[in-house]
Amino acid sequence: MNTSSLLVENTSKNFAGFKAVDDVTFDLNAGERVALLGHNGAGKTTLFKMILGFLRRDGGRISVLGAEPGSHAARSGASYLPEAVAFPGALTGKEVLTFYARLKGEKPALALPLLERVGLADAAGRKVSTYSKGMRQRLGLAQALIGQPKLVLLDEPTTGLDPISRQNVYELIGEIAAKGATVLLSSHALTELEAKTDRILILSKGCLVADDQLNQLREQAGLPIRLKIWTKPDAVQEVANQLGSTRMNGRSVELDCTLDEKIQALSAISSLGNLVEDVDVHAPSLDDVYRHFSNTAQKEA
């Protein structure tokens, strides 16, 4: 018996000799919000399907809430939003949600307020075939939140949503995690995840290449801070020499430094007095961090 909500150990999946998921190991605890990142074809959906028991794994161990994937106990405690949501088009949003509530053993009356939570209250009586992509996505999300699941698996919950709906999705995820549910969501973009998840897993070509908090990952990546110094005309060469940089560009000089050296570098720049007109400081963006982990893994492979 283990206490983790989801345990994945040395799990692999081969499709006709092609390794879609390669020896992946991680462990999620109750109340954690975890993002699974990866390029197209990295194996995110394949991993989800193994966790749900739809695909058989080729080696390794998965335990969903202490039970075998796909078992009745695992399916009772976990819920899932597929990446391409589809519903019977002839039914209304309300009927669809009632259907899933009944399958999950929840009173429909308790599930229906979810439609309001995902912003579908007005469309509840309309046929799903008339819904936009984002509306179907939100109906799928409401379905995944029925009956207080302990583990919520969301495959690209924000793809196709407008920025405000995305914000709502992360608010909802925060709420259910605060009630003790573990949320594992997949995504392509690291930028939208800032401060919205507790942990990031990065999958690249089937391998898990990172598993940590966002700021830890930023540190591990060790990406330099980039300073761009705008100089007086004709002073470019002099500034470059003083700062020991070789990268010049018309009227600006570029300088890389680590977080520790940043203040030092800035004071060196200010000591140059009126040779300098302006300074831009570029901290590495989340996309840079993500690219770093994805690329190193691909180079090693």
């Binding site: 749900l52 009772s76 899932y80 597929p82 391409a84 899933y100 999950k104 053993g105 379905q143």
Partner: peptide
């Protein structure tokens, strides 16, 4: 259509 993914993830 993909509707079974959701249905079969239910108990």
């Amino acid at each position: 259509k993909g509707t079974l993914l959701m249905t079969f993830s239910c108990p």
